[in-house]
Computed example of a mutant assay.
Amino acid sequence: MKAVSVVTIKKELKHRSTEELLELCLRLSKFKKENKELLTYLLFESHDEAGYIETVKAEIDAQFKTINTNSYFYIKKSIRKILRNIKKYARYSLKKETEVELLLYFCEVLKDFKPSISKNVTLMNIYDRQVALIKKIVSGLHEDLQYDYHIKLDELEN
């Protein structure tokens, strides 16, 4: 089965009743964990972005505590998984400020991680790519926010 475009789906949804839309949303939430997570964000957490960021930061901390530090192989796998989750949570929000906050926090925690990431080229590359991504996103934000985030970036790079 081939999926139709978003435009076609939008047109079709306009012709559905409220009850049918409710059933469609509930049915959609049963198929993938990401669908349920997105609906949870939209319904319960989108009104409090600061609370959402703090929740995700707490989850990042918990994930960093569970990393197997026996070898850099396991550390790399875990770091990539954490980064994947951060990207997913940032996609739910669609706010660039949220993405920058989460990536900055990730970089701070990663920089202070023991054993040091500076002893592994792959981990340093992951860190450097995220710092570059933060700079790119910040350049598109409002000037006041740019200033605040540049201060945090300078702290991160020193």
Rank of each mutant, 00 (worst) to 15 (best):
Y74H: 09
L103C: 03
S46P: 02
H150K: 10
L83D: 02
Q130H: 09
N120H: 13
E108T: 12
L103N: 04
L141F: 05
I126R: 02
L145H: 05
K119I: 08
R91V: 05
A62P: 00
L94M: 11
L28E: 02
Q146S: 03
E12S: 10
E101P: 00
R27L: 10
L156A: 02
D144I: 13
N70G: 14
N158R: 11
E20L: 10
S17E: 02
K114E: 12
K96W: 05
T40A: 12
N85C: 03
R80D: 10
Y89W: 14
K95Y: 12
A3T: 03
R129M: 10
L156T: 06
K10R: 14
E101N: 13
K76T: 09
K33D: 11
Y127Q: 02
R84P: 03
E155Q: 10
S139I: 03
I134R: 00
Q63I: 00
Y105V: 09
L24K: 07
S93Y: 04
K11W: 04
D144S: 12
I126C: 05
S118L: 11
E99P: 00
E12K: 10
Y105K: 08
H15S: 14
E108I: 06
L104R: 03
E99L: 01
K30Y: 08
N125G: 08
K77F: 07
T98P: 05
F31I: 08
S93L: 11
L42P: 02
L28D: 03
S78T: 01
R91G: 15
K10V: 14
R27N: 15
S17W: 02
N70P: 05
L21N: 08
D128N: 13
K111C: 07
I82D: 00
L38R: 04
S5A: 06
K95H: 11
S93G: 07
K77H: 02
S93K: 04
R27A: 07
E19Q: 12
V7N: 09
K2M: 09
D61G: 07
Y92C: 08
Y105F: 12
Y74L: 09
E49I: 15
S71A: 04
F44A: 13
L24E: 11
K119Y: 15
S78A: 10
T66S: 10
L133D: 04
K88R: 12
M1D: 07
V121D: 14
T66K: 10
L102Y: 08
E23P: 01
Y89F: 15
K30A: 15
R84N: 14
K152A: 12
F31T: 14
K32V: 03
Y105L: 04
V56I: 15
L141E: 03
N125F: 07
K77Q: 08
K95D: 14
Q146N: 03
V7G: 06
K77I: 04
F106R: 00
L123W: 01
L83V: 02
R91S: 15
L94W: 03
L145I: 08
Y74N: 11
H150I: 06
T55Y: 12
K96A: 13
K111N: 08
I60D: 00
L42I: 13
V56T: 07
S46E: 12
R80A: 07
Y147D: 10
